[in-house]
Structures are given as structure tokens and as C-alpha cells.
Amino acid sequence: MSELVKITPPLSDEDVMKLKVGDRVLITGKILTGRDSAHKRLYDLIQKGKALPIDIKGQIIYYVGPAPAKPGSVIGSAGPTTSYRMDPYAPLLMEHGLKGMIGKGVRSQPVRDAMQKHKAIYFAATGGAGALIAKNIKAARIIAYEDLGPEAIRELEVVDFPVVVANDAFGGDLYEEGMKMFRR
């Protein structure tokens, strides 16, 4: 198994180029959240040439809609949602500076092409391990689209958030490679 790599956003092109498919990565620092509805709103704003309510340059977006926080907790269970639903929006966000995405599941070819072109990275977190992942989230606050409830954009402060590089900026795809290795 590969060595653990530690990263903190914002990410530069150089940071992204150091990461390869299969690398196990621990993320510490501030990351953004966003899923279906928030992506559509960001996409529509860019299309209309308007300013975004958040700065995405060099940032990582985590595809998550957390469960409500119990009293005394900063957040409820918060595992990744399936990423392909964000595929129609992701290339435009990368064009505008987004450097990382965290989710689960395979990405479309246009997304993978955009990752190579704009030097971005896609991390897989463990789907369905929402209670475990919430332990790595130390603070959460809504920074845009509060009306969307669980789909609102949040800023999360994470410590050693464990992910695996599923797609790198060189065209590598862990889903394809992993499956090939174990197929019979």
C-alpha cells in the first residue's frame, strides 16, 4: 500500500501534480461542501458571468449533504454522495480554479479530461462511513445557500480527513485499474 500523503488546501498545480492514483491522502484545513442543487446554482452563475458567493480557487469541494448535528456535535454523519451527478457541472468549476473534489464513484470522461487540462484531482472517501468521517470534522458553518438545507454550501474544518486518489491529473483511474486487477 502506498505511503500516506498530507495536504492542506488551497492547492497549487504543483501540489496536484505530486498526487498519483492510489495514494492515500490525509486532508487537513478548510474544505467546501456542495452537491446537486448548489452545483447547479454555481454553474448557472458562471454561465451568466456573475460572481460566485464563494471563492473556489485552489479549493476542494466535498460532495456531501450531512445529517443534522446532534446537540453538542459540530455536524451529523457526513459521508460522500455519488459523484457522477456533479459531472455536468464539474468541468466548468475546474476551469474557474477548483482544484479538488471528494466523493464516491466513477467520473465521466469529460470530467477526467478537464482534470488533466486544468490540473485537478478527485479523491474517493468511503461511502456509508458517515459516522466515522464526521469524527475528522472539527468545525462546520454554512457559507452560502442556507435555504437548501442539507445541500447548503458549508465550510468544514477537517483534520486528517482520509481519502484515496481515484483520478489524478495524468489520466489515471483507480476504479478501472483496481477492477482489472481483481477480475476473474
Binding site: 456531501v64 445529517a67 451529523g76 454523519s77 454522495t81 458517515g130 459516522a131 466515522l132 442539507p150
Partner: peptide, 24 residues
């Protein structure tokens, strides 16, 4: 490693009475 994470996740959910997955 993923299966171990899922076992740990189940233990946390049970002990703290929080949902196993955020998609309830």
C-alpha cells in the same frame, strides 16, 4: 481497509446513536 472502516463506522453509530450514513 474499507471493510475495517465500515466495522468502525457501525460501532460509532451504535455507541453514539448517530446515523450509519448521512443519507438516511
Amino acid at each position: 481497509d474499507i471493510l475495517r472502516q465500515l466495522l468502525e463506522n457501525a460501532e460509532i453509530a451504535k455507541t453514539e446513536k448517530v446515523p450509519l450514513c448521512q443519507d438516511c
